[in-house]
Amino acid sequence: MATEPIDLEAAGLCTDAYGSAIGMPQLCDAWFGNQIFWLLIALVVIYFILSRIALPRISAILSERQGTITNDIAAAEDLKAKAHEAEAAYDQALVDARLEAGRIIDAAKADMKADLEAAMKKADAEIAVRTAEGEKAIAEIREGALAAVKDVAKDTAKEIVAAMGGNADARTVTAAVNARMKG
């Protein structure tokens, strides 16, 4: 803003003697040509900057980013699928191991059962042998005892008969004892 009086003729009718605005400088038609001329130049320059350099470049950046994101998502999905596969394989291995363990346990059980049965049989057989031996011994003892009882009974009967004053016939006494023993 000039403070000195200026040449009004040259400045046109839009400023006063001090260079201040009269009314709205926007409506000063003496300046329209200048503004329009420089504006058109500026617009053309901006248009070429944008359409030749900036917009294709930004568009390329954006599509490159989109591509990168898409690729990354695809890679992530691949990795996810691989992880699922690995998990499935792990589960399978776990199931297999369980089955194997079960099989081993069953086999061990069967072995043990077989061993046990064999041992039981052996033991039973031995027990049977021993029992038979025992019974035989008992039978012998019983027979021995019976014979002894017969002898003792004959002797006792002979003695009793003699004591009572009878003449004990050995054959008669024996027959009598045998008859009694049977009864």
Partner: peptide
Amino acid sequence: QAGDPVFWYTPT
């Protein structure tokens, strides 16, 4: 200077 004429080509 201030007050110089403004033509259509003048750098303003």
